[in-house]
Amino acid sequence: MDSLLLEPTLYTIKGMAILDNDGNRILAKYYNPSTFPTAKEQRAFEKNLFNKTHRANAEIIMLDGLTCVYKSNVDLFFYVMGSSHENELILMSVLQCLFDSVNQILRKNVEKRNVMENLDIVMLAMDEICDGGIILEADPISVMQRVAVRTDDIPLGEQTVAQVFQTAKEQLKWSLLK
């Protein structure tokens, strides 16, 4: 009988996904060509995953031979997938990192609308957390540093309109005070 001992490899993550509250994909990535090779299979899996998880906030489920850990917030669902025997706690730390990173990027307003507005940074964060199935970083603080969001010192080109206005106002205030 085949052993359930895990192969010593760094390739731990089979996939990551962020879905909205209709089960539609916002971002998703599958790292192993043999798990859901086509977009169609991926969609089917995500639909199924969403249906099984959106009501019960139960954190973990086995589906299609994968261990999936998940977490939801307002109108977003975050998922991390690993092989069926993968150490569930490792998957959880990756999920936690994904969530915390997004949480910080969006300044604690984890909602679909905000994700869409900062999609570039969220993509970069996902890329910093997992590279081709290998966990690259599981500490949200490091991830934040690496996606170049310097919370205090954002280059002008990167600020949102609201932020530009905010800075402009501040500056105006200062110049008046002087």
Partner: peptide, 14 residues
């Protein structure tokens, strides 16, 4: 030399 843009270019390359 915009950092975010450059990083997005890397993503695009990949």
């Amino acid at each position: 030399r915009d950092v975010i843009l450059r990083r997005m270019v890397y993503l695009g390359i990949k």
